[in-house]
Design a protein around this nucleic acid. Structure first.
Length: 435
RNA sequence: UCCUCGGUAGCUCAACGGUAGAGCAUUCGGCUGUUAACCGAAGGGUUGUAGGUUCGAAUCCUACCCGGGGAGCCA
């Protein structure tokens, strides 16, 4: 029996007759020679069939194949300098599993397409070389993130998606009309539950989908995205900054070590990732505002950064920038105030370089019961809805801190992409829910 | 929600008041090393929808629909 291999293993089978099951990626042919390119998910390999050297029937079947037809190619693997992957297959056999009809050909041709068309065909677009590479970088980022926390004493404790109240009281939530007793929303953060979990386990993280009902229509937003959120008991803002630094360096390292081929497909300038080193630059909000005003930004103290502000702040930085001590006013209710400066909060954002903007937001939480109750009132949040949360300040309250990282934003930065939407298999946006 | 740009062949675009076109894709023919292969030919259109102006509208006007980018908001 001829062994079946995956394309990625071709190098180990030079000189052998093998079978590879996949899809026809492209076909170039002349009268007497044909070059079918086969894709199997692990790679792409080019087959060669010379008319004079193979049975007439085989040559004709190969010649008339259509793009993305599912086939099993049989042949002998040969090292070939001219081939992109370094190996080629001299085809000796072909089994057609399903032939794509020429009356209804594969819609995504090797030429260029617009975003609307591609997103409508997302289920097929995922097969293309670029999307295949992005999906693998995403996988690497997620694996690295989980490995990092798992090997640093964190316990994964996932938090609920259906939540009875706003986590932050700020962004717009998706309402779910099902539960009898009260209004329920889709989670916009696992943080409040993370705090409870951290008091049980010491160090925890959650990783799951997050929903924001803002009518955002930008290259940095999705209505459904994935977020990883660590939370540590007995921790301060400074410790959480170091954690974010270590985590990002670990992720960058893993991507550089394991996904060079994918980064090459994406034409990513890897030197920009190679120079990411800790410690990252740090800047107080006050400083950031002064710097921005010097660069011509309209920002005034007390306001939040816009997208262009984030780019201005990081343009002179080789790596990420950590901005902290934001005005309390623009932050969620649970941020611990800065000692002796109550108008500022112990929050931080990590801004990625190259204009990719905020990828991490976090900080130290209020651990004093009275202050927390006061903040709930100031934000017009009902105390009853947060009774379990305030319990955490009654029964062994400790300083604690954590952050959230948007996976898609991180992957966008790693891959050097223009649009966040390419980093998730099926992006959900305000005017796009299909496929 | 607001601002802005766009919608013409399956796809990417041109034509900007006077006969609706090109490249790719598809079909047919040619080519023994192609790399988004190349060369020749053919088929393929209610110009997003509805109204209006005009002798004449893809082109100008109005409304609506659909999408891109951005603002606000955020990861």
């Amino acid at each position: 029996m001829i062994p079946r291999i995956r394309i990625v293993e071709a190098g180990a089978h030079v000189g052998q007759e093998v079978r590879i099951a996949g899809w026809l990626y492209n076909l170039r042919k002349s009268g007497k020679i044909a070059f079918p390119q086969l894709r199997d998910g692990s790679g792409i390999i080019q087959g060669v069939a010379v008319k004079a050297e193979v049975p007439e029937e085989l040559f004709e079947s190969l010649r008339s194949l259509t793009q993305e037809s599912s086939i099993i190619l049989q042949g002998k693997i040969r090292a070939e300098e001219r081939a992109a992957g370094g190996y080629e297959m001299d085809v000796t056999g072909l089994e057609i599993i399903q032939r794509v009809s020429e009356e209804d050909p594969y819609p995504i041709t090797p030429k260029e397409h617009g975003p609307d068309f591609l997103l409508n065909h997302r289920h097929l677009w995922l097969r293309s070389r670029r999307q295949h590479a992005i999906a693998r970088v995403r996988h690497e980022v997620i694996r690295a993130t989980r490995d990092f926390f798992d090997s640093n004493g964190f316990i994964l404790m996932d938090t609920p998606i259906f939540t009875p109240a706003a986590c932050e009281g700020t962004s717009t939530l998706f309402e779910v009309d099902y539960f009898e007793d009260q209004k329920v929303y889709l989670s916009q953060s696992g943080q409040l539950y993370n705090e409870a979990n951290a008091m049980a386990q010491g160090k925890v993280y959650c990783f799951g989908p997050t929903f924001r009902a803002e009518k955002s229509k930008t290259r940095r937003h999705l209505t459904e995205f994935w977020m990883v959120e660590p939370e540590m008991a007995y921790a301060t803002l400074d410790e959480v900054k170091v954690l974010a630094e270590d985590m990002l360096c670990f992720i960058v390292d893993r991507v550089l070590n394991n996904r060079q081929a994918e980064l090459k497909v994406l034409e990513r300038d890897v030197s920009k990732l190679e120079r990411i080193r800790k410690p990252f630059a740090r800047m107080h909000y006050d400083e950031a505002v002064t710097l921005l005003q010097g660069k011509g930004s309209e920002i005034v103290w007390g306001g939040d950064f816009g997208g262009t502000d984030e780019t201005l702040l990081t343009e002179d930085q080789p790596g990420p920038l950590i901005v902290d001590n934001f005005p309390t006013e623009i932050k969620a209710f649970y941020f611990q105030p800065v000692d002796g400066r109550p108008e500022c909060a112990l929050g931080m954002d990590v801004l990625a370089p190259e204009g990719y903007g905020e990828i991490i937001g976090g900080g130290q939480r209020i651990h004093d019961l009275d202050l927390l109750l006061k903040r709930l009132d100031e934000h017009n949040l009902p105390r009853e809805a947060f009774d379990w949360y305030t319990d955490l300040r009654k029964y062994g309250s400790v300083p604690h801190a954590g952050f959230g990282m948007g996976i898609e934003r991180c992957v966008t930065w790693m891959c050097g992409l223009e649009h966040l939407r390419e980093t998730i298999a099926y992006p959900r946006m305000i005017y796009r829910t299909r496929p």
